[in-house]
Design a binder for these strands. Structure first.
Length: 625
RNA sequence: GACCUCGUAGCUCAGCUGGAUAGAGCAACUGCCUUCUAAGCAGUAGGUCACAGGUUCGAAUCCUGUCGGGGUCACCA
């Protein structure tokens, strides 16, 4: 039983003892605000109807009773209806002395297997800042769930097929002149990305005239269907007054022109060949994808993320058809005259959703249904977490509902860890406008910044080349990771590449600096185990112990909410508390041996908890900086 | 148009299962290195929690509406 639970029970008994009511609303306590004296606060307003007295008197009466029934509660004060309780300081010193030697905080193991799917890149372009947020969140959520006692499987579902891959392939085939990553001296993912851009540029070049003609009414369709579609769109374009709507129609016309261009037609043809298993196309596809994978692995390694299981869409994209069939037989789906299969989700406040095309091929949803089933049959997972951007909120709502309709045993364990987009000062990142922040570039810049800042401070004497490299690496990643993870995943966030990321204040470097300071002390003296003593504690020592005490419950909450930001906030609170202590008391020069040892224990204790909290964020510490 | 989401200090963000005088960091200003790492500590200044109603003993937090930003409504993924 933790302290909070014990106090809550005491409060319940106190109220029963005094007022004789046993049917009480839930008793809740919270930490006392810094401006008031006390450790925990009980708000009595909801309970005055039992005492039938003023809030002040009620609070005082409960306070008196608490002191007599619970020895851990030393004193209390009442402000309006707030009963502030102060614990006997020995509660804190005992907690610390019982726990300082524990190597790591891990919550009790559960019988629960959780898959966390994250990253899930397309193989036609290198990773960018948006992927970085995804990777950091995914990895951290997996770490947190693991520390909270789950058996965790980290999975990556790679989108390795489709029209976008064919664009890169076609461009390389036509304009690539057999260029390889070695020849170009480029990471494989960047080389493939380069040809994706080449494709888009060529396509633009070749269709520019036709598009502007089409806006003027001149359009020559390659088939009747397109002509009808165009005529319809053009008519609408001429009628509409709304600028936004006309922009939309123009985009549709643009797509129509682009799609019937020679380049796009060839691309479609290539995709058909790929689906039919054409040997040459497959060979090219394999070659270019392998370049990309090598590039991705490199970036993953630098970011410090990894996976236990890879899924590939080329292997899963036809899955799910059986499930659609099953749903049709069960009557939860329906078939239209053209043969396409749909689900009606209007009873759930959603729409009708296509599950299988009229030609019998899969769509995104079909695939995801199949992959969900596959994940379950592979690992018998209890929970399946999808770390995917919030632009897909609707998709996952639908997917989860469908799996429920199919009575899948795992359906209720599916969860979309939805996160917000990363914005630049100029707005959203757009690859077409070249405003994308490349992941590798960003990591390089961060490394250089870390190096620069370190050299400015001039504390690197005696460090070897390798040690410096590790320092810059860990420091730059601490800065980047903390910056990204400290904001609530659900919210969109702003990243300003110009004024880069801070190394001072509420940052990753601040936290690993605190850790390094502690290491510096522990290098000079080691704490020893000792019988529980009741030395008087300094306020800032109590402050640190309270933070240490809070860790397991913070970890639990972070796991429940899939929220690394809660761990970030905790790391800050703990680091701040320790830095304050560092300024307030001496440690190595403390003359009282018992006190000195207790402070060394506290240094050790803080350092262990800080390190294990940072591990949950994927942040590595340094012993010197 | 429908649905979802966000709006807190000049900037970036906490706080949101209702509780006290709304908190950090950055930027600005003031102190603290002959003492364990000043990437630190202490302090000053900065707010109509978008706006308007409502529920409540009590609302940044819950409900409704308005305004503003973003997203989604494909036989794309």
């Amino acid at each position: 039983m933790n302290i909070e639970g014990e106090i809550v029970i005491s409060i319940q008994s106190a109220i029963e003892n005094i007022y004789g009511n046993s049917n009480l609303p839930e008793v809740k306590i919270e930490k006392t605000n810094a401006d008031f004296v006390g450790d925990y606060t009980f708000v009595v307003f909801p309970f005055v109807r039992f005492s039938k007295k003023s809030p002040e008197i009620t609070a005082s009466e409960i306070g008196e009773e608490l002191i007599s029934i619970n020895a851990k509660i030393a004193s209390f004060n009442v402000v309006k209806g707030f009963l502030n309780l102060s614990l006997n300081p020995s509660v804190w010193s005992e907690y610390h002395q019982n726990n300082w030697l524990l190597p790591k905080t891990v919550l009790p193991q559960k019988e629960s297997t959780v898959m966390v799917e994250y990253s899930s890149p397309n193989t036609n372009k290198p990773l960018h800042l948006g992927h970085i947020r995804n990777n950091l969140l995914g990895y951290s959520i997996a770490q947190i769930l693991d520390a909270a006692g789950n058996n965790v499987i980290k999975a990556n579902l790679i989108n390795d097929r489709g029209i976008h891959i064919c664009k890169s392939m076609l461009a390389w085939q036509r304009f690539g002149d057999n260029e390889t990553p070695e020849i170009a001296n480029l990471k494989g993912d960047h080389l493939v990305g380069k040809y994706y851009v080449v494709f888009e540029n060529k396509l633009k070049e070749q269709t520019e005239q036709e598009i502007s003609d089409a806006f003027e009414g001149k359009f020559f369709a390659i088939n009747e269907k397109n002509q009808i579609k165009y005529n319809d769109l053009f008519q609408k374009l001429q009628i509409t007054q709304d600028e936004k709507q006309s922009g939309k129609i123009k985009d549709d016309i643009k797509d129509l022109v682009r799609n019937q261009s020679e380049l796009m037609q060839s691309c479609q043809e290539m995709l058909r060949k790929w689906e039919n298993g054409d040997a040459d196309v497959l060979e090219l596809w394999n070659k270019m994808n392998n370049w990309v994978y090598a590039g991705f692995e490199n970036t993953y390694k630098r970011l410090g993320v990894c996976f236990d299981k890879y899924y590939y869409e080329s292997k899963t994209y036809t899955l799910g058809k059986k499930l659609v069939q099953e749903g049709l037989e069960k009557g939860v789906f329906y078939q239209k005259e053209d043969g396409s299969i749909w689900v009606d989700l209007t009873p759930n406040g959603l729409d009708h959703k296509l599950l299988l095309r009229s030609d019998g091929t899969s769509v995104y949803m079909t695939q995801d249904m199949g992959t969900a089933e596959l994940k379950y049959s592979d690992f018998k997972i209890n929970k399946s977490i999808y770390v995917v951007g919030n632009e897909q909120d609707y998709h996952f709502n639908v997917l989860f509902l469908i799996m429920q309709k199919l009575d899948r045993p795992y359906a209720l364990g599916m969860y979309h860890a939805s996160y917000g987009m990363v914005d630049l000062p100029s707005g959203k990142m757009k690859s077409r406008e070249g405003t994308v922040v490349d992941a590798d570039d960003l990591l390089n810049e961060m490394y250089e910044t870390a190096k620069l800042k370190t050299i400015e401070l001039g504390k690197t004497e005696g460090l070897s080349h390798d040690e410096l490299d590790t320092l810059y690496h860990n420091l730059s990643l601490a800065a980047l990771k903390f910056f990204i993870l400290k904001v609530d995943p659900k919210k969109r966030m702003l990243f300003n590449p110009e004024d880069s990321i801070d190394f001072q204040g509420d940052t990753g470097p601040f936290i690993i600096y605190t850790y390094a300071r502690i290491q510096s002390i522990l290098k000079q003296a080691k704490p020893v185990d000792s019988p529980i003593s009741h030395l008087p504690l300094h306020v800032s020592e109590i402050g640190v112990i309270k933070q240490l005490y809070a860790y397991p419950s913070i970890l639990n909450a972070a796991a429940d909410e899939y929220n690394p930001a809660a761990i970030c906030q905790y790391c800050l609170d703990l680091a701040k508390a320790y830095n304050r202590l560092y300024n307030d008391v001496v440690i190595l020069k403390e003359e009282n041996a018992e006190l000195k040892n207790m402070r060394l224990q506290l240094a050790q204790h803080t350092s262990t908890v800080l390190k294990s909290a940072l591990e949950l964020l994927g942040i590595s510490t340094v012993d010197r900086m």
